[in-house]
Design a protein around this nucleic acid. Structure first.
Lengths: 205, 205
DNA sequence: ACCTTTGTTAACCATTTGGTTAAATTGCAT
DNA sequence: ATGCAATTTAACCAAATGGTTAACAAAGGT
């Protein structure tokens, strides 16, 4: 728990601290003083390196979004077979979130507070994920008869839900089920295989 | 959009306003002045009827939790056949959330900020949902051979995820897919049947 | 050594925000 | 009408909070 802070530059310390505070408390709940304390530096330095709370927040938010969205894009747009895509998606996506459990709550929440503004910003920065190809691919498989009839959007939503939701409910789930960190990790590791299997079992003809 | 406020008591106006503001901005982001404005009354009245922001928040939070948790309990503890339970759960739960789309984000988020405190409070107020029976029932069906082998907790998580997550991603999903309110509603109405079908197709032997 | 640039801090400042107060208004029982 | 309790408001207040400033320390080039 003690400082790794010694050999980090002030700027790095600030970013690490801001990440921690913003991710757990959100924009509205975060305090500049908390971030300064967490970084072990003077509050004025926050403004020296990043002009304002909003600017600092934006950099953390973009960093977080970067971890989530480009990966979706890549898988959506690749030319793997459908079942492979599903397997890859679950595996890679859950992996990211296991390492950053707060990520989905944080990003979705802040988007919910100011949807249009964030949507625009995310779109210009890096193309907001476009599932069009993935949906087409599902339709094609349905026509080929390899999978059952289903609204492609429903299938997409099912996949996203089962991968992402567990992290958004993590604290409640752990308390209710009495799971520690490692047990939750194990549960999510199992899920990397379980979710694709569950989906494919459901839609395969 | 105009006032129904005329024939409501001040207390009712406050509660309605607080509900709206807290649900969309969260505890940290909500301002007492915003709530007063929304209710069209003086800020001091908020403190006259409810002592503090925290007290007011707690009443709104509990009201929200009440809409979500007892219903889960009831279905978990009923003695319906497994497939019926899944169908009922999806149908009833999605219905509640269609009428209150912010509910899941709000409740889960605030729990995430202060997990242990909320967990205790929810437990004393009304028993926090206990899926033990539901999980047992799944095991029994597996042993009977009516459904495939699966970790019951994974199945539970799948069901919860597919019902709840769409509402947490609602704004983003709508923007990305260009869906209006009615279209989203239709999508969720379709989901009431689709989710149980998806699950049962997956686990049925 | 000296100076200039960069980094860092303590002390401040202005605004926001939750909360209080005392006066005014309303409702209503007598 | 009169008096009394409940309700409502404008004006305040103190603490918290984002942000600034001016002085000070470090680093590095000459």
């Amino acid at each position: 728990m003690v400082n790794i802070k010694k050999d980090q530059s002030a700027e790095e310390k600030i970013i690490a601290a801001a990440r921690k505070v913003f991710l757990s408390k959100g924009l509205a709940g975060a305090r500049m003083q908390d971030i300064a304390d967490e970084a072990g530096i003077n509050k004025a330095l926050l403004h020296y390196y990043f002009r304002s709370k909003d600017k600092l927040f934006e950099m953390i938010f973009m960093e977080a979004a970067q971890k989530l969205f480009p990966k979706i894009n890549f898988i959506f747009e690749s030319n793997m077979p459908l079942f492979d895509k599903i397997e890859h998606f679950a595996d890679e996506y859950i992996s990211v979130m296991v390492e950053n459990p707060y990520l989905p709550s944080f990003v979705l929440n802040e988007i919910n507070r100011e949807p249009v503004a964030f949507f625009k910003k995310l779109n210009e920065k890096f193309g907001f994920p476009d599932p069009a190809l993935f949906l087409k691919q599902i339709e094609r498989e349905i026509k080929k008869g390899t999978i059952k009839r289903i609204n492609p959007l429903q299938l997409l939503m099912n996949m996203l839900s089962m991968c992402i939701f567990p992290f958004m409910a993590k604290p409640m789930f752990q308390l209710r089920m009495g799971l520690g960190e490692t047990q939750f990790r194990d549960f999510m590791e199992q899920r990397k295989k379980e979710v694709p299997k569950f989906i494919i079992d459901s839609i395969r003809r």
